[in-house]
Design a protein around this nucleic acid. Structure first.
Lengths: 209, 209
DNA sequence: GAGCTTTCGCTACGCCTCGTAGCGTAATAC
DNA sequence: GTATTACGCTACGAGGCGTAGCGAAAGCTC
């Protein structure tokens, strides 16, 4: 996950439990201290490992926090709730619930801030968080096209653009609502948002449910 | 702007030029160093003032960077370009251009990250950045309603909700596209985005231009 | 002008964190 | 056994933080 697994077959193996303990301790420290006051020495103490062990596995605070936060977003699921509107509302509410947790808020935004000056970190975030969750858009879109709720797009290039656009609109709106405007993405807001998004995507050819 | 103006009529007045010099030095340091490696001592040296002077005017790194970044967003304007679609495309492209500047990227996101654990800082961001730019949505919306491009909303409470929703959708999508997806919010993307947003807002009763 | 008030530049300081080096020990593969 | 790697621990220099204290400068009031 973090640095390397060079198929080292010899020597003492790494303690796998330490990884989960360190990542859990990182999230706990994010809750109690936030990003700026989080120190690697403190995380090591919480996890019950030596500080040097932590440095042997992660390059620094940035990489550690990205890995710790990325696990949070793997909880996202997209159960079939019968309609595209219900599917979107469900996943948006899940996403909002994750962003309600302080370890996700401060950790994610701080990592994104650092990634503006660190290409490797940006790629790490993209691979372990952003691109991983794009699967939700792809799945929901495929379902909706099967149901006839969305027009099928023959041009694969244009379809990819649309997927990216939807992803940025959904995730961006929730993040902005939660962190910038500072208001909750509650059921009422999610309903309004989903209505506008669906009308826009359906090309204005569909009635309001 | 920063700390206090208690109508201190007596004593040596503050050097107003130092404020602008400090904020400009902060932006320059953000460009060259980024948030995490920016130090107040370095900013003071760049601005040609003593470090103690800096601490007399700002409480810390967070507040200083918020003020330095807030000035960037005051450049946003909303010239009348004839149609709601053109107005939106114009302001989104302006917003994207600001987010293209490294001092805006790292400074804004880091401040938002810190604000998740600092209520005073969150309020400072809301007042000096977020709420200030909501004027653009209000103005564009009023224009569009005059043109008949958007339905008028009699219920003031629902109208306020709609304004908030539009603001979060526009700003959130651009920020997410730029910083999370790491792709440019170029003319093509802005056109696609505006089309979806407008279809959603018009309630599906309008043709694609 | 004299006197008061506030700001400014400068130096110095204790505190904390960072990231690394070095050592001895533990755990596994061959 | 031996080789190899991981681990815990201690110690260290480097550097930033935020503050205190000082003398000097720049205003206002009288």
């Amino acid at each position: 996950m973090q640095s390397r697994t060079p198929a080292s077959r010899t020597g003492r193996p790494r303690n796998a439990a330490a990884d989960t303990a360190i990542l859990a301790a990182t999230r706990q420290a994010l809750v109690e201290l936030g990003w700026s006051k989080l120190t690697l020495g403190d995380v090591a103490t919480r996890a019950g490992v030596a500080k040097t062990t932590l440095y042997r596995r992660w390059a620094g605070k940035n990489e550690l926090v990205v890995d710790a936060v990325a696990e949070l977003f793997d909880e996202l699921e997209l159960p079939d709730r019968g309609s595209l509107a219900n599917d979107i509302e469900g996943v948006v509410l899940q996403f909002a619930a994750i962003l309600d947790r302080p370890e996700a808020r401060s950790g994610l935004m701080a990592a994104v801030a650092e990634s503006t000056r660190d290409d490797a970190l940006r790629e790490r975030i993209r691979a372990s968080i952003v691109d991983r969750q794009k699967r939700l858009v792809l799945e929901g879109r495929a379902r909706a096209q099967c149901r006839g709720e969305l027009p099928s797009e023959p041009d694969p290039e244009e379809a990819a653009r649309t997927v990216d656009l939807i992803f940025d609109m959904v995730a961006g709106a929730v993040v902005h609502r939660t962190l910038m405007s500072g208001k909750p993405a509650d059921a009422e807001w999610v309903r309004d948002f989903t209505r506008v998004l669906l009308l826009g995507l359906a090309g204005g050819t569909q009635d309001t449910p």
